[in-house]
Design a protein around this nucleic acid. Structure first.
Lengths: 242, 242
DNA sequence: ATTGGGCAAATCGTATGCAATCTTGGCATT
DNA sequence: AATGCCAAGATTGCATACGATTTGCCCAAT
Protein backbone atom coordinates (compact mmCIF):
# COMPACT_ATOMS: atom_id res chain seq x y z
CA UNK A 1 0.00 0.00 0.00
CA UNK A 2 1.19 3.43 -0.82
CA UNK A 3 0.35 6.39 1.34
CA UNK A 4 1.73 9.04 -0.94
CA UNK A 5 -1.56 10.08 -2.44
CA UNK A 6 -2.99 10.58 1.02
CA UNK A 7 -0.66 13.37 1.90
CA UNK A 8 -1.10 16.93 0.88
CA UNK A 9 2.33 18.42 0.48
CA UNK A 10 1.07 21.94 0.07
CA UNK A 11 -0.39 22.29 3.53
CA UNK A 12 2.88 23.37 5.06
CA UNK A 13 3.72 27.02 4.78
CA UNK A 14 6.87 27.45 2.72
CA UNK A 15 8.56 29.81 5.17
CA UNK A 16 8.42 27.08 7.78
CA UNK A 17 11.16 25.38 5.89
CA UNK A 18 13.70 28.06 6.52
CA UNK A 19 12.91 29.02 10.04
CA UNK A 20 11.92 25.74 11.53
CA UNK A 21 13.16 22.26 11.21
CA UNK A 22 12.33 20.07 8.27
CA UNK A 23 11.04 17.40 10.59
CA UNK A 24 8.60 19.98 11.91
CA UNK A 25 7.18 20.45 8.44
CA UNK A 26 6.83 16.71 7.99
CA UNK A 27 5.14 16.46 11.35
CA UNK A 28 2.66 19.13 10.32
CA UNK A 29 1.92 17.40 7.07
CA UNK A 30 1.36 14.04 8.70
CA UNK A 31 -0.62 15.63 11.49
CA UNK A 32 -3.00 17.19 9.04
CA UNK A 33 -3.30 13.96 7.13
CA UNK A 34 -4.10 12.09 10.31
CA UNK A 35 -6.60 14.47 11.84
CA UNK A 36 -8.69 14.70 8.76
CA UNK A 37 -8.33 11.04 8.25
CA UNK A 38 -6.66 10.78 4.94
CA UNK A 39 -4.48 8.40 6.94
CA UNK A 40 -6.68 5.87 8.68
CA UNK A 41 -5.99 4.68 12.23
CA UNK A 42 -3.72 1.68 12.18
CA UNK A 43 -1.91 2.70 9.01
CA UNK A 44 1.74 1.89 9.21
CA UNK A 45 4.10 4.80 8.77
CA UNK A 46 7.46 3.30 8.00
CA UNK A 47 10.49 5.49 8.38
CA UNK A 48 11.81 4.85 4.91
CA UNK A 49 8.44 5.38 3.31
CA UNK A 50 7.90 8.70 5.05
CA UNK A 51 11.47 9.63 4.33
CA UNK A 52 11.30 8.97 0.63
CA UNK A 53 7.90 10.66 0.41
CA UNK A 54 9.32 13.90 1.70
CA UNK A 55 12.68 13.30 0.16
CA UNK A 56 14.62 13.22 3.38
CA UNK A 57 16.61 10.56 5.14
CA UNK A 58 15.19 8.20 7.71
CA UNK A 59 16.79 10.29 10.45
CA UNK A 60 14.56 13.24 9.81
CA UNK A 61 11.48 11.14 9.17
CA UNK A 62 12.09 9.39 12.42
CA UNK A 63 12.24 12.67 14.32
CA UNK A 64 8.85 13.64 12.92
CA UNK A 65 7.37 10.30 13.93
CA UNK A 66 8.81 10.66 17.42
CA UNK A 67 7.08 13.98 17.82
CA UNK A 68 3.79 12.54 16.66
CA UNK A 69 4.20 9.68 19.07
CA UNK A 70 4.78 12.16 21.84
CA UNK A 71 1.50 13.88 21.20
CA UNK A 72 -0.34 10.61 20.92
CA UNK A 73 -1.24 10.72 17.25
CA UNK A 74 0.88 7.72 16.39
CA UNK A 75 1.96 4.79 18.48
CA UNK A 76 5.35 3.22 18.03
CA UNK A 77 6.15 -0.38 18.81
CA UNK A 78 9.71 -1.35 19.36
CA UNK A 79 11.37 -2.88 16.33
CA UNK A 80 8.05 -2.76 14.52
CA UNK A 81 7.44 0.81 13.56
CA UNK A 82 4.96 3.64 13.88
CA UNK A 83 1.23 3.34 13.35
CA UNK A 84 -1.52 5.91 13.25
CA UNK A 85 -3.20 5.82 16.65
CA UNK A 86 -6.34 3.82 17.09
CA UNK A 87 -7.74 5.36 20.27
CA UNK A 88 -9.79 3.10 22.49
CA UNK A 89 -13.15 4.22 23.84
CA UNK A 90 -11.52 4.64 27.21
CA UNK A 91 -8.91 6.90 25.70
CA UNK A 92 -11.69 8.83 24.02
CA UNK A 93 -13.45 9.34 27.31
CA UNK A 94 -10.27 10.58 28.92
CA UNK A 95 -9.68 13.00 26.09
CA UNK A 96 -13.09 14.55 26.54
CA UNK A 97 -12.78 14.54 30.30
CA UNK A 98 -9.59 16.54 29.88
CA UNK A 99 -11.28 18.96 27.55
CA UNK A 100 -14.16 19.47 29.96
CA UNK A 101 -11.58 20.45 32.51
CA UNK A 102 -9.48 22.74 30.39
CA UNK A 103 -11.77 24.47 27.97
CA UNK A 104 -13.97 26.31 30.47
CA UNK A 105 -10.80 27.83 31.84
CA UNK A 106 -9.71 28.80 28.37
CA UNK A 107 -13.04 30.44 27.75
CA UNK A 108 -12.76 32.32 31.03
CA UNK A 109 -9.32 33.59 30.06
CA UNK A 110 -10.42 34.41 26.55
CA UNK A 111 -13.31 36.59 27.63
CA UNK A 112 -10.83 38.88 29.36
CA UNK A 113 -8.61 39.29 26.35
CA UNK A 114 -10.77 38.97 23.27
CA UNK A 115 -10.81 41.99 20.96
CA UNK A 116 -13.33 43.07 18.34
CA UNK A 117 -10.83 42.01 15.69
CA UNK A 118 -10.76 38.56 17.25
CA UNK A 119 -14.54 38.46 17.16
CA UNK A 120 -14.67 39.15 13.46
CA UNK A 121 -11.97 36.57 12.82
CA UNK A 122 -14.11 34.09 14.67
CA UNK A 123 -17.15 35.06 12.64
CA UNK A 124 -15.28 34.42 9.44
CA UNK A 125 -14.14 31.07 10.78
CA UNK A 126 -17.70 30.14 11.65
CA UNK A 127 -18.88 31.12 8.21
CA UNK A 128 -16.40 28.76 6.70
CA UNK A 129 -17.55 26.04 9.04
CA UNK A 130 -21.11 26.67 7.91
CA UNK A 131 -20.07 26.37 4.30
CA UNK A 132 -18.60 22.91 4.80
CA UNK A 133 -21.67 21.96 6.75
CA UNK A 134 -23.84 22.60 3.72
CA UNK A 135 -21.64 20.65 1.37
CA UNK A 136 -21.92 16.95 0.81
CA UNK A 137 -19.29 14.29 0.62
CA UNK A 138 -16.52 12.94 2.78
CA UNK A 139 -14.10 15.71 1.89
CA UNK A 140 -16.52 18.30 3.23
CA UNK A 141 -17.03 16.21 6.33
CA UNK A 142 -13.32 16.13 6.98
CA UNK A 143 -13.02 19.83 6.39
CA UNK A 144 -15.89 20.39 8.77
CA UNK A 145 -14.25 18.39 11.54
CA UNK A 146 -11.03 20.28 11.00
CA UNK A 147 -12.73 23.68 10.95
CA UNK A 148 -14.63 22.79 14.08
CA UNK A 149 -11.37 21.95 15.81
CA UNK A 150 -9.83 25.17 14.60
CA UNK A 151 -12.51 27.11 16.45
CA UNK A 152 -11.34 25.63 19.72
CA UNK A 153 -7.72 26.25 18.85
CA UNK A 154 -8.38 29.88 18.02
CA UNK A 155 -10.04 30.22 21.39
CA UNK A 156 -6.98 28.76 23.07
CA UNK A 157 -4.79 31.16 21.19
CA UNK A 158 -6.87 34.12 22.33
CA UNK A 159 -6.64 32.91 25.92
CA UNK A 160 -2.93 33.65 25.73
CA UNK A 161 -1.56 30.74 27.71
CA UNK A 162 0.91 28.93 25.48
CA UNK A 163 0.97 25.85 27.67
CA UNK A 164 -2.77 25.38 27.58
CA UNK A 165 -2.61 26.15 23.90
CA UNK A 166 -0.27 23.25 23.36
CA UNK A 167 -2.42 20.95 25.46
CA UNK A 168 -5.43 21.95 23.40
CA UNK A 169 -3.49 21.36 20.23
CA UNK A 170 -2.99 17.79 21.28
CA UNK A 171 -6.50 17.31 22.62
CA UNK A 172 -8.17 18.71 19.52
CA UNK A 173 -6.05 16.59 17.23
CA UNK A 174 -6.85 13.46 19.16
CA UNK A 175 -10.50 14.44 19.34
CA UNK A 176 -10.64 14.67 15.58
CA UNK A 177 -9.29 11.16 15.39
CA UNK A 178 -11.86 9.95 17.88
CA UNK A 179 -14.74 11.67 16.14
CA UNK A 180 -13.70 10.20 12.83
CA UNK A 181 -13.57 6.77 14.45
CA UNK A 182 -16.61 6.73 16.67
CA UNK A 183 -18.82 9.53 15.39
CA UNK A 184 -22.32 8.62 14.31
CA UNK A 185 -22.67 9.65 10.74
CA UNK A 186 -25.37 12.29 10.42
CA UNK A 187 -25.20 14.15 13.65
CA UNK A 188 -21.93 16.02 13.82
CA UNK A 189 -23.59 19.18 12.59
CA UNK A 190 -24.91 20.08 16.02
CA UNK A 191 -21.60 21.65 16.81
CA UNK A 192 -21.88 24.70 14.65
CA UNK A 193 -24.73 26.51 16.35
CA UNK A 194 -23.09 25.85 19.67
CA UNK A 195 -19.92 27.51 18.48
CA UNK A 196 -21.82 30.63 17.55
CA UNK A 197 -23.60 30.56 20.90
CA UNK A 198 -20.25 30.45 22.71
CA UNK A 199 -18.96 33.28 20.60
CA UNK A 200 -22.06 35.37 21.22
CA UNK A 201 -21.65 34.97 24.95
CA UNK A 202 -17.99 35.93 24.65
CA UNK A 203 -18.87 39.00 22.67
CA UNK A 204 -21.26 40.09 25.40
CA UNK A 205 -18.50 39.53 27.95
CA UNK A 206 -20.49 36.84 29.72
CA UNK A 207 -17.70 34.42 30.51
CA UNK A 208 -19.84 32.45 32.92
CA UNK A 209 -22.38 31.67 30.25
CA UNK A 210 -19.75 31.01 27.62
CA UNK A 211 -18.05 28.47 29.86
CA UNK A 212 -21.33 26.74 30.55
CA UNK A 213 -22.13 26.60 26.85
CA UNK A 214 -18.70 25.20 26.16
CA UNK A 215 -19.18 22.37 28.62
CA UNK A 216 -22.51 21.52 27.06
CA UNK A 217 -20.90 21.63 23.67
CA UNK A 218 -18.25 19.13 24.72
CA UNK A 219 -20.91 16.97 26.30
CA UNK A 220 -22.82 16.96 23.05
CA UNK A 221 -19.79 16.04 21.02
CA UNK A 222 -19.07 13.12 23.29
CA UNK A 223 -22.72 12.09 23.43
CA UNK A 224 -22.71 11.85 19.66
CA UNK A 225 -20.03 9.20 19.79
CA UNK A 226 -20.65 5.52 19.95
CA UNK A 227 -18.23 4.46 22.65
CA UNK A 228 -20.05 1.34 23.67
CA UNK A 229 -17.53 -1.20 22.62
CA UNK A 230 -14.66 -1.52 20.28
CA UNK A 231 -15.57 -1.53 16.64
CA UNK A 232 -15.25 -5.00 15.22
CA UNK A 233 -11.63 -4.91 14.26
CA UNK A 234 -11.63 -8.22 16.03
CA UNK A 235 -9.42 -10.27 18.24
CA UNK A 236 -6.23 -8.34 18.10
CA UNK A 237 -7.70 -5.21 19.65
CA UNK A 238 -9.96 -7.22 21.91
CA UNK A 239 -6.96 -8.85 23.50
CA UNK A 240 -4.95 -5.70 23.92
CA UNK A 241 -5.72 -3.81 27.07
CA UNK A 242 -8.70 -1.48 27.51
CA UNK B 1 32.57 22.72 32.53
CA UNK B 2 31.73 19.11 33.08
CA UNK B 3 28.23 18.02 33.94
CA UNK B 4 29.05 14.43 34.68
CA UNK B 5 29.15 14.80 38.43
CA UNK B 6 25.73 16.40 38.38
CA UNK B 7 23.98 13.36 37.07
CA UNK B 8 22.92 10.46 39.16
CA UNK B 9 23.10 7.38 37.00
CA UNK B 10 21.39 5.17 39.49
CA UNK B 11 18.04 6.91 39.43
CA UNK B 12 16.78 4.93 36.48
CA UNK B 13 15.29 1.56 37.21
CA UNK B 14 17.39 -1.16 35.60
CA UNK B 15 14.46 -2.95 34.00
CA UNK B 16 13.69 0.20 32.06
CA UNK B 17 16.70 -0.56 29.97
CA UNK B 18 15.32 -3.76 28.55
CA UNK B 19 11.73 -2.83 28.05
CA UNK B 20 11.97 0.77 27.10
CA UNK B 21 14.26 2.70 24.94
CA UNK B 22 17.68 3.81 26.03
CA UNK B 23 16.86 7.37 25.16
CA UNK B 24 13.96 7.12 27.57
CA UNK B 25 16.34 6.23 30.38
CA UNK B 26 18.59 9.15 29.50
CA UNK B 27 15.59 11.44 29.42
CA UNK B 28 14.59 10.27 32.89
CA UNK B 29 18.06 10.81 34.22
CA UNK B 30 18.35 14.30 32.78
CA UNK B 31 14.82 15.10 33.86
CA UNK B 32 15.61 14.23 37.44
CA UNK B 33 18.82 16.19 37.29
CA UNK B 34 16.98 19.22 35.97
CA UNK B 35 13.99 19.21 38.28
CA UNK B 36 16.06 18.99 41.38
CA UNK B 37 18.45 21.45 39.97
CA UNK B 38 21.68 19.59 39.84
CA UNK B 39 21.64 21.03 36.35
CA UNK B 40 21.08 24.76 36.55
CA UNK B 41 18.88 26.60 34.06
CA UNK B 42 20.91 27.77 31.13
CA UNK B 43 23.35 24.87 31.32
CA UNK B 44 24.30 23.69 27.90
CA UNK B 45 23.59 20.07 27.14
CA UNK B 46 25.63 19.22 24.09
CA UNK B 47 24.71 16.12 22.21
CA UNK B 48 28.16 14.66 22.25
CA UNK B 49 28.64 15.39 25.93
CA UNK B 50 25.38 13.74 26.90
CA UNK B 51 26.17 10.91 24.55
CA UNK B 52 29.58 10.17 25.97
CA UNK B 53 28.26 10.54 29.52
CA UNK B 54 25.77 7.77 29.01
CA UNK B 55 28.01 5.93 26.62
CA UNK B 56 25.72 6.15 23.65
CA UNK B 57 25.98 7.82 20.30
CA UNK B 58 24.75 11.29 19.55
CA UNK B 59 21.70 9.81 17.85
CA UNK B 60 20.17 8.50 21.03
CA UNK B 61 21.33 11.46 23.10
CA UNK B 62 19.64 13.69 20.60
CA UNK B 63 16.39 11.78 20.90
CA UNK B 64 16.43 12.27 24.65
CA UNK B 65 17.04 15.98 24.26
CA UNK B 66 14.22 16.24 21.75
CA UNK B 67 11.83 14.71 24.23
CA UNK B 68 12.94 17.10 26.93
CA UNK B 69 12.49 19.98 24.54
CA UNK B 70 9.00 18.78 23.80
CA UNK B 71 8.01 18.91 27.44
CA UNK B 72 9.60 22.30 27.89
CA UNK B 73 12.44 21.34 30.21
CA UNK B 74 15.13 22.26 27.70
CA UNK B 75 15.14 24.74 24.89
CA UNK B 76 16.97 24.03 21.67
CA UNK B 77 18.36 26.69 19.39
CA UNK B 78 19.06 25.74 15.86
CA UNK B 79 22.70 24.95 15.20
CA UNK B 80 23.53 25.97 18.74
CA UNK B 81 22.35 23.20 20.95
CA UNK B 82 20.11 22.40 23.88
CA UNK B 83 20.01 24.35 27.11
CA UNK B 84 18.22 23.74 30.37
CA UNK B 85 15.12 25.93 30.31
CA UNK B 86 15.19 29.27 32.01
CA UNK B 87 11.49 29.96 32.41
CA UNK B 88 10.42 33.58 32.37
CA UNK B 89 8.07 34.96 35.02
CA UNK B 90 5.33 35.00 32.42
CA UNK B 91 5.93 31.35 31.70
CA UNK B 92 5.81 30.68 35.42
CA UNK B 93 2.46 32.41 35.69
CA UNK B 94 1.09 30.37 32.83
CA UNK B 95 2.31 27.17 34.40
CA UNK B 96 0.49 27.90 37.62
CA UNK B 97 -2.60 29.11 35.79
CA UNK B 98 -2.68 25.75 34.04
CA UNK B 99 -2.30 23.91 37.29
CA UNK B 100 -5.12 25.88 38.88
CA UNK B 101 -7.27 24.71 36.03
CA UNK B 102 -6.28 21.07 35.99
CA UNK B 103 -5.59 20.05 39.54
CA UNK B 104 -9.04 20.67 40.99
CA UNK B 105 -10.37 18.33 38.33
CA UNK B 106 -7.77 15.78 39.20
CA UNK B 107 -8.73 15.99 42.85
CA UNK B 108 -12.40 15.57 41.93
CA UNK B 109 -11.59 12.47 39.92
CA UNK B 110 -9.28 11.12 42.58
CA UNK B 111 -11.86 11.32 45.35
CA UNK B 112 -14.02 8.89 43.40
CA UNK B 113 -11.30 6.33 42.93
CA UNK B 114 -8.98 6.56 45.88
CA UNK B 115 -8.61 3.40 47.96
CA UNK B 116 -7.47 2.90 51.54
CA UNK B 117 -4.23 1.49 50.17
CA UNK B 118 -3.73 4.69 48.22
CA UNK B 119 -4.32 6.68 51.37
CA UNK B 120 -1.59 4.88 53.26
CA UNK B 121 0.78 5.24 50.34
CA UNK B 122 0.11 8.95 50.46
CA UNK B 123 0.73 9.03 54.19
CA UNK B 124 4.10 7.40 53.72
CA UNK B 125 4.92 9.89 51.00
CA UNK B 126 3.99 12.77 53.26
CA UNK B 127 6.15 11.37 56.04
CA UNK B 128 9.11 11.37 53.73
CA UNK B 129 8.33 14.92 52.74
CA UNK B 130 8.28 15.87 56.40
CA UNK B 131 11.65 14.24 56.90
CA UNK B 132 13.30 16.36 54.23
CA UNK B 133 11.57 19.38 55.65
CA UNK B 134 13.37 18.91 58.93
CA UNK B 135 16.75 18.43 57.35
CA UNK B 136 19.08 21.25 56.49
CA UNK B 137 21.12 21.87 53.41
CA UNK B 138 20.54 22.26 49.70
CA UNK B 139 20.29 18.53 49.07
CA UNK B 140 17.37 18.27 51.47
CA UNK B 141 15.77 21.27 49.87
CA UNK B 142 15.98 19.66 46.47
CA UNK B 143 14.61 16.42 47.80
CA UNK B 144 11.79 18.35 49.42
CA UNK B 145 10.83 20.05 46.18
CA UNK B 146 10.88 16.73 44.41
CA UNK B 147 8.85 14.97 47.08
CA UNK B 148 6.35 17.78 47.06
CA UNK B 149 5.94 17.38 43.30
CA UNK B 150 5.58 13.65 43.69
CA UNK B 151 2.54 14.19 45.86
CA UNK B 152 0.79 15.93 43.01
CA UNK B 153 1.87 13.26 40.56
CA UNK B 154 0.57 10.48 42.77
CA UNK B 155 -2.72 12.31 42.88
CA UNK B 156 -2.81 12.47 39.11
CA UNK B 157 -2.05 8.79 38.92
CA UNK B 158 -4.93 7.97 41.25
CA UNK B 159 -7.26 10.09 39.16
CA UNK B 160 -6.78 7.54 36.39
CA UNK B 161 -6.67 9.81 33.38
CA UNK B 162 -3.41 9.12 31.59
CA UNK B 163 -3.64 12.28 29.51
CA UNK B 164 -4.03 14.54 32.49
CA UNK B 165 -1.32 12.53 34.17
CA UNK B 166 1.07 13.37 31.40
CA UNK B 167 0.10 17.02 31.47
CA UNK B 168 0.73 17.07 35.21
CA UNK B 169 4.06 15.36 34.69
CA UNK B 170 5.10 18.25 32.55
CA UNK B 171 3.57 20.93 34.74
CA UNK B 172 5.12 19.58 37.93
CA UNK B 173 8.53 19.30 36.33
CA UNK B 174 8.39 22.85 35.06
CA UNK B 175 7.05 24.04 38.39
CA UNK B 176 10.04 22.56 40.15
CA UNK B 177 12.27 24.50 37.82
CA UNK B 178 10.33 27.68 38.49
CA UNK B 179 10.37 27.20 42.25
CA UNK B 180 14.07 26.61 42.21
CA UNK B 181 14.53 29.78 40.19
CA UNK B 182 12.12 32.19 41.78
CA UNK B 183 11.33 30.69 45.17
CA UNK B 184 12.04 32.83 48.21
CA UNK B 185 14.44 30.93 50.36
CA UNK B 186 12.83 30.09 53.69
CA UNK B 187 9.21 29.74 52.90
CA UNK B 188 8.69 26.67 50.79
CA UNK B 189 7.80 24.63 53.85
CA UNK B 190 4.22 25.86 53.87
CA UNK B 191 3.33 23.23 51.33
CA UNK B 192 3.50 20.24 53.57
CA UNK B 193 0.61 20.93 55.90
CA UNK B 194 -1.51 21.79 52.91
CA UNK B 195 -0.78 18.44 51.36
CA UNK B 196 -1.98 16.68 54.47
CA UNK B 197 -5.07 18.85 54.52
CA UNK B 198 -5.91 17.87 50.97
CA UNK B 199 -5.34 14.24 51.77
CA UNK B 200 -7.54 14.45 54.86
CA UNK B 201 -10.36 15.91 52.82
CA UNK B 202 -9.92 13.16 50.25
CA UNK B 203 -10.01 10.51 52.92
CA UNK B 204 -13.30 11.89 54.17
CA UNK B 205 -14.62 11.83 50.63
CA UNK B 206 -15.09 15.59 50.57
CA UNK B 207 -13.97 16.33 47.04
CA UNK B 208 -15.38 19.81 47.11
CA UNK B 209 -13.22 20.78 50.04
CA UNK B 210 -10.19 18.97 48.68
CA UNK B 211 -10.44 20.88 45.43
CA UNK B 212 -10.73 24.16 47.27
CA UNK B 213 -7.72 23.33 49.39
CA UNK B 214 -5.76 22.39 46.32
CA UNK B 215 -6.43 25.73 44.68
CA UNK B 216 -5.34 27.54 47.80
CA UNK B 217 -2.25 25.40 47.87
CA UNK B 218 -1.34 26.35 44.35
CA UNK B 219 -2.05 29.98 45.12
CA UNK B 220 0.32 29.78 48.04
CA UNK B 221 3.08 28.20 46.03
CA UNK B 222 2.80 30.91 43.42
CA UNK B 223 2.54 33.65 46.03
CA UNK B 224 5.82 32.48 47.50
CA UNK B 225 7.59 33.18 44.24
CA UNK B 226 9.26 36.41 43.34
CA UNK B 227 8.02 36.95 39.80
CA UNK B 228 8.48 40.70 39.75
CA UNK B 229 11.01 41.02 37.03
CA UNK B 230 13.58 38.98 35.30
CA UNK B 231 16.65 38.13 37.27
CA UNK B 232 19.63 39.92 35.80
CA UNK B 233 20.44 37.56 33.01
CA UNK B 234 20.51 40.75 31.00
CA UNK B 235 19.99 41.89 27.48
CA UNK B 236 19.55 38.68 25.59
CA UNK B 237 16.48 37.61 27.53
CA UNK B 238 15.28 41.19 27.80
CA UNK B 239 15.19 41.50 24.05
CA UNK B 240 13.59 38.19 23.40
CA UNK B 241 9.85 38.22 23.80
CA UNK B 242 8.09 37.91 27.15
C1' DA C 1 42.85 51.24 21.79
C1' DT C 2 39.17 49.82 19.04
C1' DT C 3 37.07 47.82 15.13
C1' DG C 4 36.66 44.67 11.37
C1' DG C 5 37.91 40.58 8.70
C1' DG C 6 39.12 36.01 8.37
C1' DC C 7 40.59 31.55 9.79
C1' DA C 8 40.11 27.53 13.06
C1' DA C 9 37.59 24.84 16.37
C1' DA C 10 33.43 23.22 17.97
C1' DT C 11 28.79 21.75 17.35
C1' DC C 12 24.76 20.75 14.99
C1' DG C 13 21.95 18.72 10.85
C1' DT C 14 21.64 14.99 8.01
C1' DA C 15 22.73 10.83 5.36
C1' DT C 16 24.08 6.31 5.32
C1' DG C 17 25.87 1.71 6.81
C1' DC C 18 25.68 -2.27 9.78
C1' DA C 19 23.77 -5.29 13.28
C1' DA C 20 19.65 -6.87 15.62
C1' DT C 21 14.95 -7.96 15.43
C1' DC C 22 10.67 -8.99 13.45
C1' DT C 23 7.73 -10.84 9.68
C1' DT C 24 6.64 -13.95 6.03
C1' DG C 25 6.63 -17.69 3.05
C1' DG C 26 7.65 -22.34 2.20
C1' DC C 27 8.69 -26.98 3.57
C1' DA C 28 8.73 -30.92 6.37
C1' DT C 29 6.36 -33.49 9.88
C1' DT C 30 2.44 -35.23 12.37
C1' DA D 1 -5.17 -30.46 6.69
C1' DA D 2 -2.88 -28.39 10.44
C1' DT D 3 1.18 -27.35 13.04
C1' DG D 4 6.00 -26.40 13.81
C1' DC D 5 10.37 -24.83 11.97
C1' DC D 6 13.67 -22.35 9.30
C1' DA D 7 15.53 -19.17 6.06
C1' DA D 8 14.98 -14.94 3.34
C1' DG D 9 13.41 -10.32 3.27
C1' DA D 10 12.12 -6.17 5.39
C1' DT D 11 12.40 -2.73 9.01
C1' DT D 12 14.01 -0.67 13.00
C1' DG D 13 17.97 0.73 16.47
C1' DC D 14 22.09 2.67 16.61
C1' DA D 15 26.71 4.38 15.37
C1' DT D 16 29.45 6.98 12.57
C1' DA D 17 30.83 10.16 8.72
C1' DC D 18 30.56 14.42 6.39
C1' DG D 19 28.91 19.02 5.25
C1' DA D 20 26.95 23.39 7.19
C1' DT D 21 26.64 26.82 10.58
C1' DT D 22 28.08 29.21 14.45
C1' DT D 23 31.55 30.90 17.76
C1' DG D 24 35.87 32.49 19.35
C1' DC D 25 40.35 34.15 18.51
C1' DC D 26 43.99 36.47 16.33
C1' DC D 27 45.75 40.02 13.79
C1' DA D 28 45.81 43.89 10.84
C1' DA D 29 44.09 48.47 9.87
C1' DT D 30 42.32 52.82 11.33
Amino acid sequence: MNISEKINFTDTAPEDRSQEDRSMAIRESLRNAIIDRRLAPGTKLSESEVGSLFDVSRTVARAALQMLAFEGLVKTERNRGAFVSNPSPEEARQIFASRRLIEPGIVAAAVERITPEDISRFRRQLDEEQRYLNERGPAARRAEIKASGDFHLMLASVAGNVILQRFMDELVARSSLVIALYGRSGVSSCGHSEHTAVLDALEKGDGERAARLMIHHIDHIEADLDLQLKQGSGLKDALSLA
